[in-house]
Design a protein around this nucleic acid. Structure first.
Lengths: 147, 147
DNA sequence: TATTTTAACTTGACTAGTCAAGTGATGGTG
DNA sequence: CACCATCACTTGACTAGTCAAGTTAAAATA
């Protein structure tokens, strides 16, 4: 009667799981004085620096406004610097953030992995990754059906 | 060098996908003047009404404070009513919400399903659901490793 | 019965994000 | 060369959520 399609069941699971694991990740990262969202942004900056806000927004799938606010917070905390450069702002990590990331990154990767390593075999993880990749890629091309 | 474990790759995919599909769902539900979060709450209330805020918070994995604010918004919009009953508040849908849900539910289920129906076979969807169920259930029992 | 405890809910101060309107410097065109 | 458009970014008003401290009414206890 309710939630009856297999797709909607998957959807629910995905939502609940990501919600749950996000909260746990936040708790985990508290020891480094970071949130999951901040970590996500810092990783992208570290990987692609120097880059503009537009580019960064795209990478973390957040709007221009969202990235502007997030960077304001990160700048206040001394994790990143924005340099007005031409008509764009170029973002890069501070030494402080660089040092923290060096320390956090392996731990966070291990933490993320443990959600899957503990219950799925290598083979199953590959299957899950392949399925989710297809679903994700498709969703990026998807259009909202008209009203 | 970065993001190298299979687990962390899955994690990223899940996060990006749920983020993406959530935004699309919000866009889709705009025609009914609802957000995804509101729809999620209304579905739970509809299924289990009458229920307390504690129970509801548990079902949608949100804190007490979060559900309190959400219900305040939904009440303001005339979707639900809270009755002080004993020392708890009992939540139920208004006729207005009941009518809307009747209309939205099948459409939203179809919308959610389309993320998977379009790219995965029935068999693959079952596999994905089974894998995610295991991962999700495990995460609920999981403990944050000590610092 | 008066007093404390407790359980359910609310609220203030945040993070994180959205959308849409507002800035401000760059660069093209009359 | 002055004006206007455009592009990158910011900001005001929201939704949605967190945590921790604050209510408040019922229950338990002295």
């Amino acid at each position: 009667m309710r939630n009856n399609t297999i797709g909607s069941l998957i959807w629910l699971r995905l939502m609940r799981f990501t919600n749950q694991s996000n909260q746990m990740s936040n708790e985990f990262l508290k020891r480094f004085d970071l949130t999951t969202a901040q970590f996500d942004v810092l990783i992208q900056v570290r990987t692609y620096q120097p880059l503009t806000q537009m580019e960064l927004a795209e990478k973390v799938t957040v709007t221009q406004g969202g990235i502007s606010r997030m960077l304001a917070r990160l700048e206040k905390e001394g994790y990143i610097v924005r340099k007005q450069d031409w008509k764009t702002k170029t973002i890069s990590l501070t030494d402080k953030a660089e040092a923290i990331m060096e320390q956090v990154l392996p731990e966070q990767l291990a933490f993320q992995s443990s959600f899957f390593d503990d219950v799925l075999s290598e083979e199953e993880q590959k299957t899950l990754y392949a399925l989710m990749s297809r679903v994700h890629k498709h969703s990026e091309k998807k259009e909202i059906p008209p009203a």
